[in-house]
Design a protein around this nucleic acid. Structure first.
Length: 572
RNA sequence: CGGGGCGUAGCGCAGCCUGGCAGCGCGCCUGCUUUGGGAGCAGGAUGUCGCAGGUUCAAAUCCUGCCGCCCCGACCA
């Protein structure tokens, strides 16, 4: 397959200073990738071998799940995006370009528009459904801040699949098929991962799961229950509605002078009460309308939940002048009493009594405030950020927080795009209906990076057999020793003949250099051909992961290697 | 977009404060020795000091502008 001496494989001893996380450092050091510009990378031969293996596993499982591979254009006409409404909505992440005729295009960050247009034009009847089409293609998202190498780059490889169904039930099945395929895919990569319930964001739709690879370096937070299956993205993580207790034994309300006391910490310290006895009043602008959102002092608002609850497009904290207008006081003294806006409150308010709020008056707060008596809360909702040890919404267990890398997501899109772009079919009842869609993504490069995050040691990468760039590396200890190099060459030829992915380290380097490189690039099996063992007619088979070494007689190496690789592919 | 940092040989960095021969380590090339965990000795090559302008007898060094990269934040999914 490959001789090391001929391969373009520039490894380095030193770690590049601008690589922060381990997978990025190791990808650079092992000669897998090189940066061309911010968030834009070239895959070198070793890196591209890994990428192709990841793609092929994804491809196999997508095909197995009944999806068909297509290949769509990277450059997409603006009209499609105008039609779906995303030319306006998508924002600066969409890289827009003009052609020589001054027509607008974008470099596809995703392909809902293209696929919907295609299917709309070609599919007429329910008899042609369900249909699931996918592609593996380079996307471009002009991230504000690309980082962590290939983990969060601007240009990146992605598998994206789109399902079209005639009925809700069929759409559920399509979703489930993809969900199951994803489980198989990430299992084959040897990853420790977890599907978590997720917010469906601006892509829209009703339901979605993210596939999170657990890693401390992960950019995403997730929570999981210690005693049931519940797991969710931090932003999505639900909090159950507490039981309402009716306690009407209220103390009389009291206004107190609190000069220059603004934050929850300052208020609770100044008044000698716990943050749990203070209510935070935050003024948001929801599509231009002010809304007062109340949450217990020790909790934080989850803006994603709030946005979903309000069903608004834009949501931001109000500016100082708006606060003054709505509350009549400067920032830091907002409270619900007499406020000129709608008031909603998080569940954490439900059983609070005699709490502290801002007085809507500079340098004043109010003690012993109570909802119902002193002001009215229009609605209670689940609006706060989850915390470690919060109760599980599904069982009696407690929630834990972990970090993860989002390697895949599955969305139920519903009719968002079919409606906007008029993708209909004729149903058996003779009526025209909207196709029900789903979309399913896997980050190819990110998945490879996640594998490294989860599987490495101080010497380098430890690839699982399924995506290792080579399954075996043969290392003759000294290339100038005729016997060693001849044995290594013969072994190499026979393994190649067996269809094994093997690289022969035929460089005229000292053994230590070769060992270090073999470890760094993470080849699962190393066959060392050295004079001591060879005198006994044996070679040494060393496993990258465990470091264990077995001396195997030359005659039986081929069978041993084949079996080991097959076992490795099965369990990985 | 705001804050901070960086840009000097292929890579990692020093030199800049206090202007005066462009340096170190790794890598690379040649030769000899060496050959089981990143060898030793000897010799050698390699720079628009990010770009442009300014100050100065003299600029990697000081000043101005621009570009690129990294980190933190805001933003987005």
């Amino acid at each position: 397959m490959m001789r090391y001496s001929e391969m373009f494989l520039p490894t380095t001893k030193e770690t590049p200073s601008d690589a922060e996380i381990l997978s990025h450092q190791l990808m650079l050091r092992s000669g897998m990738i090189r940066k061309l510009a911010g968030g834009i990378y070239t895959y070198l031969p070793l890196g591209y071998r890994v990428i192709r293996k990841v793609e092929n596993i994804v491809r196999e499982e997508m095909n197995r799940a009944g999806a068909q591979e297509v290949f769509m254009p990277a450059v997409q006409p603006a009209e499609l995006w105008v039609e779906s409404g995303r030319w306006e909505m998508y924002g600066k992440e969409l890289l827009r370009v003009r052609d020589r005729h001054n027509r607008d295009y974008c470099i596809g960050p995703t392909h809902e528009e293209v696929i919907t247009a295609l299917v709309r034009d070609e599919i007429q009847t329910y008899r042609q459904l369900p249909m699931n089409l996918y592609q593996i293609q380079t996307k471009f998202r002009d991230e504000i801040r690309p980082r962590f190498g290939i983990m969060r780059s601007r240009e990146f490889g992605m598998k994206d699949a789109y399902s079209f169904d005639a009925t809700e039930q069929s759409a559920e099945e399509s979703y489930q098929k993809m969900f199951d395929a994803y489980i198989r895919i990430f299992t084959r990569f040897g990853l420790t991962f977890r599907p978590v319930e997720a917010d469906s964001g601006t892509i829209g739709g009703s339901f979605s799961h993210e596939f999170m690879v657990t890693a401390d370096s992960g950019e995403d937070g997730m929570i999981y229950c210690t005693s049931c299956d519940y797991a969710a993205n931090l932003e999505k993580a639900e909090i159950a509605r507490p039981e309402e207790k009716h306690d009407v034994d209220y103390s009389p309300m009291e206004e107190v002078h609190t000069p220059d006391v603004r934050t929850i910490e300052e208020v609770s310290a100044f008044l000698g009460v716990a943050p749990e006895d203070v209510v935070k009043t935050m003024i948001f602008m929801s599509d231009g309308e002010p809304v007062a959102v109340l949450v217990r002092g020790d909790e934080d608002i989850n803006e994603t939940k709030l946005r979903n609850y309000l069903g608004c497009d834009s949501l931001e904290l109000a500016m100082d002048d708006t606060i003054l207008e709505v509350t009549g006081s400067p920032r830091g003294f907002a409270g619900p009493i007499g406020i000129k806006s709608r008031i909603i409150a998080d569940y954490s308010l439900m059983n609070m009594k005699d709490f502290v709020v801002g007085a809507n008056k500079e340098d004043h707060h109010i003690k012993n405030c109570n909802s119902g008596r002193d002001f009215e809360i229009q609605n209670y909702a689940d609006l706060r950020l989850i915390r470690e040890d919060d109760p599980c919404p599904r069982c009696e267990g407690k929630l834990r927080i972990a970090r993860g890398i989002e390697v895949g997501h599955v969305f139920k899109l519903g009719v968002k795009y079919s409606k906007a772009m008029n993708a209909t079919f004729l149903d058996s009842d003779g009526k025209e209906k909207l196709m029900i869609m789903g979309c399913y993504g896997i980050g190819i490069g990110r998945t490879a990076a996640a594998c490294i995050e989860q599987s490495h040691d101080e010497d380098g990468i430890i690839w699982p057999m399924s995506i290792a760039p080579f399954q075996v590396i043969i290392t003759p200890v000294n290339i100038n020793d005729e016997k060693l190099s001849k044995t290594a060459e013969e072994l190499y030829d026979s393994l190649v003949a067996d269809g094994i992915e093997v690289i022969l380290d035929d460089r005229n380097e000292r053994a230590g250099v070769k060992f270090k490189d073999a470890d760094l690039i993470g080849i699962p099996i190393r066959i060392t051909v050295g004079s001591k063992s060879l005198a006994e007619g044996k070679v040494e088979v060393r496993f990258r992961k465990s470091g264990e070494v077995e001396k195997i007689p030359l005659e039986t190496v081929r069978g041993f290697i084949t079996k080991t690789i097959n076992d490795g592919l099965k369990c990985a």
